[in-house]
C-alpha cells in the first residue's frame, strides 16, 4: 500500500503543540486515589498494631502515626491531581501521551514502530472500568508506550487503529477514539 500522508504539508512540519490532547477517563483519577490509599493501609496497620514497648524507639508510634496521616493523603492527593492531567492524542501516524505533574513527559510513538499491542487491566482497574494499552517497539522498555487511564471501549478502538496501521491495511477513518474518553 502506498504511503498516505494527506494532512502533512512538506513546507511546514506538523507541530506537536498544535495537537489538541484528550484527557484520560475521569475515573482514572479516582482509581489512582484509591490505589494510593490502599497502598498506605499496610503501613498504618503495622503502626497501629505496634506494642508501646519493644526493640524500636518509644517515639516511633508517636511520630509515625501523624507522619503517615500527613504523607498518605498528600501522596494520594498528588496522584489524583497527576492523573487528572494525563492526556493522549492520536494523529495519522503517531500516538501521543502526556503524563507527570512536577516532571511532565510527552511521549510520541510513531505507529510504524509498534511491534505488538496488548491491553491489561488489574482487578481495581476493572472496578473503575479502566484498561491500559501497552504498545511495544523494538526499542526496549524506553521505547514502549503505556497508555493508562482509558476505558475498555477506547482501548479497543485505539488497539484496532494501531493494528490496522501495523498491518498496513486501510485506514480506519470511522474510528474516533476521542469521543469515548469516559
Amino acid at each position: 500500500m502506498p504511503f498516505s500522508n494527506a494532512r502533512l504539508d512538506p513546507a511546514r512540519l506538523p507541530r506537536l503543540e498544535e495537537l489538541p490532547l484528550t484527557g484520560v477517563s475521569r475515573a482514572y483519577a479516582r482509581y489512582r486515589l484509591a490505589h494510593s490509599l490502599l497502598g498506605w493501609i499496610p503501613a498504618l496497620v503495622v503502626l497501629a498494631m505496634l506494642p508501646p514497648h519493644g526493640p524500636w524507639p518509644d517515639w516511633l508510634p508517636l511520630v509515625g502515626a501523624p507522619l503517615l496521616a500527613v504523607l498518605g493523603p498528600l501522596h494520594s492527593g498528588l496522584n489524583w491531581v497527576e492523573a487528572r492531567g494525563r492526556a493522549y492524542g492520536l494523529r495519522e501516524h503517531d500516538l501521543v501521551y502526556r503524563s507527570g505533574l512536577l516532571v511532565r513527559r510527552t511521549r510520541i510513538l510513531p505507529l510504524s514502530r509498534v511491534q505488538h499491542v496488548e491491553t491489561v487491566s488489574g482487578p481495581l482497574e476493572r472496578l473503575f472500568g479502566l484498561v491500559r494499552l501497552n504498545c511495544f517497539t523494538a526499542g526496549g522498555s524506553s521505547g514502549d508506550l503505556q497508555l493508562a487511564g482509558i476505558t475498555s471501549e477506547t482501548a479497543a478502538d485505539l488497539r484496532d487503529y494501531v493494528l490496522s496501521r501495523i498491518r498496513g491495511g486501510p485506514d480506519r477513518e470511522d474510528i474516533d477514539p476521542h469521543d469515548r474518553s469516559g
Binding site: 504511503f3 502533512l8 512540519l13 506537536l16 501516524h93
Partner: peptide, 19 residues
C-alpha cells in the same frame, strides 16, 4: 526541543527528508 521532535517524527513517519 519541539522543532527537533517534529523534525525527527516527520523523518521517521514519512521516510522522506524534511524540506
Amino acid at each position: 526541543a519541539r522543532a527537533l521532535a517534529d523534525w525527527v517524527l516527520y523523518r521517521v513517519e514519512t521516510r522522506e527528508l524534511p524540506p
